[in-house]
Design a binder for these strands. Sequence first.
DNA 1: AACACCTATCGCAAATTTCCGATGGATTCC
DNA 2: GGAATCCATCGGAAATTTGCGATAGGTGTT
Lengths: 109, 109
Amino acid sequence: MEIDSSLAILAALGHPTRLDAFRLLVRHEPDGISTGQLVEASGLTQSTFSTHLAVLVKAGLVLPEKRGRQQIQRANIKALKDLMLFLAKDCCQGRPELCEPLVAELNCC
Amino acid sequence: MEIDSSLAILAALGHPTRLDAFRLLVRHEPDGISTGQLVEASGLTQSTFSTHLAVLVKAGLVLPEKRGRQQIQRANIKALKDLMLFLAKDCCQGRPELCEPLVAELNCC
DNA sequence: AACACCTATCGCAAATTTCCGATGGATTCC
DNA sequence: GGAATCCATCGGAAATTTGCGATAGGTGTT
């Protein structure tokens, strides 16, 4: 994964509102939920949350799809996976001793 | 891992200067490098970089240790591991189908 | 003691982010 | 067609972040 993409994902998730929204979307995979429900859950204004959502979409973490007059949002698990691969490979570049404990613990889920 | 810690790590890494610095530190594990070398690599002013470094340290991603009049910085791989566990567990919470491809690919390093 | 070196912190300006209300486009319902 | 719903975008204010030079503390050197 490109470093710029990783950077965008990290920055996008580095805000409480956006991290919360993304986690909510993950828990609603694979159905997704509407923007309105996300707004309600955030406790913010519709317009404010909309800009946060745009950041997530731009980073590729959220995939919107129109359904009627609603906008259904879905978490892009692949983007998260790519980020984790980027982080892990950065550690492990020829240095498996750094990553071994990481991968070991991940296997538990 | 607490959500607040994860948030701090994500925000800390969500800036090009700080992500670069952390990656450089990872590549210098386990010896670490001095703050001065990090400053030079960043191309920024010493004072400016110092504030970025403080963000990384506060997030627990970097562990400083005094050595003479230098300050040696080391990447905290455990913090990165904790973040990845947080992200992965968030996906996998009772939903292994989401994480399986992730863990599978991680095993390659 | 005096000096040089390394780094954290202060003060401050510029840039960016965050938040809101208001507006407008698109879609559905009556 | 007209009203209502859903959501993106605009304009602007407040807060935060980012960057710099200057300063100061702590450490080694002479």
